[in-house]
């Protein structure tokens, strides 16, 4: 992790950012005051401080779908990465095809195909599932699978980079002690790769929390759909300004919570890395965006 700026220059950038922020906010408020729209700020306040059960279940859905999808993505990513570096060519090809296909097509198309496409042909139409007394609607299942499998393609490349970052001498040392390739991977290489993987994984999960909103296409009532519906009918009908500010605040709460969790994970993984604890990005820095762990450029989903 390289520190992009330091010292006075970093301080200058920070105050410049703040200044721009104030100016934008002031202009926005001024613009609000000039329009004839009847603002109802209570909608924002109530949606955040006194959320009704619709909003709460939307938050819950967004969070749980994100967590399960990301878990699927990580597991697929580990298998995908090991496949990508396999000695057997067919396995390498299979893994490469997986990455090529799911990174090469829009997630929106993948979700639609999985739910509508498979549904209309009768290949699989996602019946509701009861698991431990909880009913998981078919749409939610489809959403989790689509997000998870798509994420797996990205995680494959992240995990692969993590594995390749580990000195080949580690695998040799493990083998010379009598470990099989699998055991050496599991016990020696992957635990070390985890430290390299976690910062970009954090970015992935942050993305995931927001990307769940694409499930609007199969009308899974997550956070975005919930606020969208409140705009379409009910007591807050046609208040998109307030409603989507409130939605944004909810997403910010979720991503902020996650960045705190991530900092803790990174600190735990820094074990044994010498001065690693100091390298860990402090959460304040992360929130201020001063040191982004690993920005991904030019990615469209």
């Amino acid at each position: 992790m390289t520190r992009a700026r330091s010292g006075p220059q970093r301080e200058r950038t920070r105050s410049a950012t703040r200044l721009i922020g104030f100016v934008v906010l002031a202009l926005l408020l001024a613009a609000c005051g000039r329009s004839s729209y009847q603002y109802n700020w209570n909608i924002v306040v109530d949606s955040v401080i006194r959320p009704d059960h619709l909003i709460l279940s939307g938050v819950w859905l967004t969070l749980s779908i994100s967590v399960v999808s990301q878990l699927i993505g990580v597991i697929l990513g580990i298998f995908g990465a090991v496949g990508r570096i396999s000695r057997l060519a067919p396995i390498r090809w299979l893994a490469a095809f997986y990455v090529w296909f799911f990174r090469g097509t829009p997630l929106l198309v993948q979700i639609s195909f999985l739910y509508f496409g498979l549904g209309v042909t009768g290949v699989y139409n996602f019946p509701d599932l009861v698991l431990l007394g909880i009913t998981i609607p078919g749409k939610v299942q489809a959403g989790i699978i689509a997000l998870g499998v798509n994420e797996g393609a990205y995680m494959t490349e992240i995990v692969r980079a993590g594995i390749l970052a580990i000195d080949p001498g580690q695998m040799e040392a493990a083998k010379s002690l009598g470990m099989t390739y699998r055991r050496a991977m599991r016990r020696i290489v992957l635990p070390q790769a985890a430290r390299v993987i976690v910062p970009p994984l954090g970015n992935e999960f942050n993305n995931m929390l927001k990307t769940t909103s694409l499930l609007v296409i199969i009308s899974v009532p997550e956070l975005y759909v919930t606020f969208s519906r409140k705009n379409a009918s009910g007591p807050t009908v046609f208040h998109p300004f307030e409603l989507f500010i409130a939605a944004a605040i909810w997403y910010l709460l979720l991503t902020t919570l996650w960045s705190l969790v991530q900092t803790r994970i990174e600190r735990r993984l820094a074990r044994g890395s010498g001065t690693g604890v100091d390298d860990t990005v402090r959460w304040r820095d992360r929130l201020l965006g001063m040191r982004n762990a690993s920005p991904r450029s030019g990615r469209a989903r």
């Binding site: 001498g169 580690q170 040799e172 040392a173 083998k175 010379s176 002690l177 020696i188 635990p191 070390q192």
Partner: peptide, 18 residues
Amino acid sequence: RSQIGMVFQRFNLFPHLT
């Protein structure tokens, strides 16, 4: 291999273990 020890030039200790 488990019967043959090996000591490397660059040590190759496992850095995540004590």
